[in-house]
Write a protein that binds this DNA or RNA. Structure first.
Length: 427
RNA sequence: GCGACCAUAGCUCAAUCGGUUAGAGCGCCGGUUUGUGGUACCGGAGGUUGCGGGUUCGAUCCCCGUUGGUCGCCCCA
């Protein structure tokens, strides 16, 4: 029945072009994070519920209504991770990774939030994640942001995305600013949108993000963080900005930028785009010096970000695969020999696709439809007097540069027992 | 949780004002032609128009409900 093969809302079956783009984002991340010395870490997809509930903030939407929480057979309350940072911080504490501090970590994988799906948002979605744990220096902030910026550049997205930067100050700055915001907005509560009135009680910083037309004037007059920054927090933010300039990372100040979770302090940033409809944030992160302490660990400064893989995959252009050839024997007698050719090609690094039945003509059609780059024919007729068997390479793509490249790879992989015609090959 | 829009063949879409046998392209299957290779042509299979009600002589079309999808609000990557 149809209902049995139905996909759960907000999940995806990735295939074809979609998975190529997804993998391209992940592959690029893995390449770039190595350039920055970020070590791979993998943590569980589920944790004890308290790991997320305590750290993200009880009133945040994610904790209040978006977590996939369930009881296991032992009666423990577990939660499918809605984000990476809390789980990584838990692992850092549980495994005594303090000995490696400062630790630069990279992770990626699925996350789960019970939300209404829309463009660039899913219930099972995937993020890239980068964290530096155990470094209190502005240079660490610069390092993670530079990693993000290079990732975007290498994905070809540099001109589609801008970096917005803000500071939330240290704990003292943040609470002073928060109090000032509450005072300001409470004075104008009647003029606020209903949603912002609710935010006033739950998370007043969020009012600054409001998209409501009527809130904008009030937001424009709202107190800025800059007036409430302690001297130390101000110096810190200065150092981050100077570091970014020195690293050649362009940014713009957005003093209304806040972050979703309660654990953020000091630097907050987002890479945003206007190419994704309502979901403009492609990478978001900041400093979370208080998180590990709230989990019961020692005071541990840390900074990091997460990137939405689906959102990045929507932005990247078409992704091409490495070339693949199909091998087709003209006659049945040549099929055994075709196996030899296939093994030779594969053991020498040339990808070979093949179908399992059909006429040569049909096999060529299939190869083309599957997106193979060319067909290598085992020729029925050929001069074998010198002991070498002729192969004919046919391309589906007319590009002469590609043809020569492909012919060169195939020719080199085949070695002296075969000679190649077609495709501009000279053997 | 709220709102708007959408749902027709495996896929992308048509079908006049509500009108009788729901079409096309692609894909799939079979065949013919061609023959050192991205062909062309002929034929075929494939539909309870998401599902359930209602209005009507008659519903793919109008109404209600329901399920699913898309986009937006909220929130977030």
């Amino acid at each position: 029945m149809a209902d049995k093969v139905q996909r759960v809302r907000g999940t995806q079956d990735l295939f074809g072009d979609a998975i190529l783009r997804f993998d391209h984002v992940v592959d690029t991340f893995n390449r770039v994070r190595k350039l920055y010395g970020f070590r791979r870490v993998d943590v569980p997809v589920f944790e004890f519920t308290s790991v997320f509930a305590r750290t993200l903030g009880e009133t945040t939407d994610v904790v209040a209504k978006e977590m996939y929480t369930f009881e296991d057979r032992g009666g423990e309350s577990l939660t499918l991770r809605p984000e990476f940072t809390a789980g990584i911080a838990r692992a850092y504490l549980a495994n005594g990774w303090q000995q490696h501090a400062p630790l630069k970590l990279a992770a990626w994988g699925p996350l789960f939030r019970y939300e209404r799906p829309q463009k660039g948002r899913f219930r099972q979605f995937h993020q890239l994640d980068a964290e530096i744990i155990g470094a209190a220096e502005p240079a660490a902030d610069v390092e993670v942001i530079a990693l993000a910026a290079q990732l975007l550049t290498e994905l070809g997205l540099a001109d589609k995305v801008v970096l917005q930067l803000n500071t939330l100050g240290d704990a003292d700055s943040r609470s002073a600013w928060r109090a000032a915001l509450v005072e300001h907005f409470t004075g104008h509560a009647a003029a606020l949108s209903a949603e912002s009135r609710e935010r006033l009680a739950k998370n007043p910083l969020r009012i600054l993000d409001s998209k409501a037309e009527g809130d904008r004037a009030l937001i424009a007059d709202a107190p800025r963080i800059d007036r409430h920054l302690t001297a130390e927090a101000g110096r810190y933010f200065d150092a981050v900005q100077k570091g970014l300039q020195a690293a050649g990372v362009a940014f713009e100040r957005n003093d209304a930028l806040v972050r979703g979770f309660d654990y953020y302090r000091h630097t907050a940033f987002e890479f945003v785009t206007d190419h994704l409809g309502a979901q403009g944030t492609v990478i978001g992160g900041g400093r979370y010096d208080g998180l590990i302490e709230t989990m019961g660990g020692p005071h541990t400064p840390a900074v990091g970000w997460a990137a939405g893989i689906e959102r990045l995959a929507l932005l990247v252009g078409e992704v091409s695969e490495d070339f693949v050839v199909a091998v087709v024997a003209d006659t049945e007698e040549h099929e055994q020999q075709a196996r030899d050719v296939i093994a030779l090609l594969r053991s020498n690094g040339v990808a070979v696709d093949l179908s399992f039945s059909g006429s040569p003509k049909r096999l060529v059609e299939i190869a083309r439809k599957r997106g193979n780059d060319g067909v290598l024919f085992m020729r029925a007729a050929g001069d074998m007097s010198d002991g070498r068997h002729p192969l004919h390479l046919q391309h589906f793509d007319g590009d002469p540069v590609l043809m020569r490249t492909l012919a060169a790879h195939v020719g080199a992989a085949l070695g002296p027992r075969y000679y190649l015609t077609g495709g501009g090959a000279r053997v």
